[in-house]
Simulated scan of single mutants.
Amino acid sequence: MISLEQARAIVAATRAKGRDMGLNPLTVVILDAGGHLVAVEREDGSGYGRPDIAEGKAAGALAMGVSSRKLGDMAADRPQFMAALSAAWSGKLIPAAGGVLIRDGAGVLLGAVGVTGDLSDNDEEAALAGIEAAGLAAG
């Protein structure tokens, strides 16, 4: 399981990357491997619905075992399947880049990060930087 210290390090580094990139205000959510909320930060100016979006990106990645970018690709190929999954999971599945699995050095799944606030590709780039800065691995 991901520790609170690790989660905070990912959140801080993700936000720092967003500032370095000049992104819109970000919201970052960290879930443990069981899908439980560990940390959430919503930057000033980030919309009130952003925590739900970030959590949906992270939760979808955990539930399916792939990044939310891959879920977006799956949604394009099989929209009915993805709509059914979203309904089954009470909307906790956002198939857009920005949800990334977090693993330790041995490849053990620790949890997932979900980032939202800018273009999905930028959200994902910030998430990846956060994971790396915390000394963990994505995927």
Rank of each mutant, 00 (worst) to 15 (best):
M1Q: 12
I2V: 15
S3M: 04
S3I: 07
L4K: 12
L4A: 15
E5D: 15
E5M: 01
A7P: 00
R8L: 13
R8D: 14
A9V: 03
A9S: 11
A12I: 08
A12W: 08
A13Y: 04
A13N: 08
T14G: 08
A16K: 06
A16Y: 01
K17V: 07
G18S: 07
M21Q: 13
M21G: 02
M21W: 00
G22Y: 06
N24R: 14
N24K: 14
N24S: 12
P25M: 09
L26V: 12
L26N: 05
T27N: 09
V28P: 00
V29E: 02
I30T: 03
A33G: 04
A33L: 04
V38Y: 00
V40M: 14
V40L: 14
E41M: 06
R42D: 08
R42N: 08
E43T: 08
E43K: 09
D44V: 15
D44I: 15
Y48M: 08
G49H: 08
G49N: 09
R50W: 03
P51E: 13
A54C: 13
A54P: 01
A58F: 11
A59T: 00
G60N: 03
A61T: 10
L62P: 00
A63P: 01
A63L: 11
A63Q: 10
A63S: 11
M64W: 08
G65V: 05
G65I: 12
G65E: 11
G65Y: 06
V66G: 01
R69T: 05
L71F: 07
L71R: 03
L71W: 01
G72N: 04
G72P: 01
G72R: 00
G72K: 00
D73Q: 15
M74E: 13
M74S: 03
M74L: 15
A75C: 14
A75P: 01
A76P: 06
A76Y: 02
R78S: 15
R78Y: 12
P79K: 10
A83T: 05
A84T: 14
A84L: 14
A84S: 15
L85G: 10
L85H: 03
S86M: 03
A87S: 12
W89P: 00
K92F: 06
I94L: 12
I94Q: 08
I94D: 10
I94A: 10
G98A: 11
G98W: 09
G99Q: 02
V100L: 13
I102L: 01
A106I: 03
G107N: 14
G107H: 09
G111Q: 04
G111R: 03
G111V: 09
A112G: 13
V113L: 11
V113P: 00
G114I: 07
V115P: 04
V115E: 10
T116L: 08
G117L: 05
G117E: 03
L119H: 11
L119G: 10
N122A: 15
N122D: 14
N122G: 10
E125Q: 12
E125G: 02
A129T: 06
G130N: 07
G130K: 04
G130P: 05
G130S: 13
E132M: 09
A134L: 13
G135L: 13
L136W: 04
L136E: 13
A137P: 03
G139M: 06
